[in-house]
Amino acid sequence: MPLGPPPIRGAPSSRPLDLNLAEKAIELVRNALPFLTAGPPLIDYGPGGEVHVDVPLMYQGFALDRIHYDPQLRSPSPKGRPVRVWGMRVTEDEVISVMKNVIKELVVVEAVEYREPELAWVVPLAWRRLIVAHIKVSNDANEIIPDYGLSEEVRRRTL
């Protein structure tokens, strides 16, 4: 039997959305930018000797997103490209010193996406020409939404 086209899941939204709030969401993230800090680096060594490093982006004690770190280049890797390197040792101090400067250079991208299932705006953050993180903002563009799972992971690593 011939295969049909892939099914379309979910129905298009019928909820009204005030698109002017996109500007407000961007502004909210821009105001939060000076308060962002780098959390403890999440350095993981795999059984094959590979190392993978992510740095949580923290805001008032909550993690908002993780920034992938490239240990070879000693700089962030774009979102969607986690880096694994073999045969390298990475120190926390090294990652923190690099990320402190990276966070100072973060800029808010002047465009947003909207995630209907999460009822949230998503504002990208860029470092130089790379999008390195996404910040979620509530539907009404008044509040910043943390990444709860990542916040828990950061806490585990802190203890």
């Binding site: 909210l28 105001n31 805001y59 909550f62 008044n142 509040e143 910043i144 939404i145 943390p146």
Partner: peptide, 17 residues
């Protein structure tokens, strides 16, 4: 008491509750 730091009144954006 020795330091008596002064604060700028600046409010960071709210976190989701």
């Amino acid at each position: 008491g020795k330091g008596k730091a002064s604060l700028k009144v600046l409010r960071p954006p709210r976190l989701f509750m």
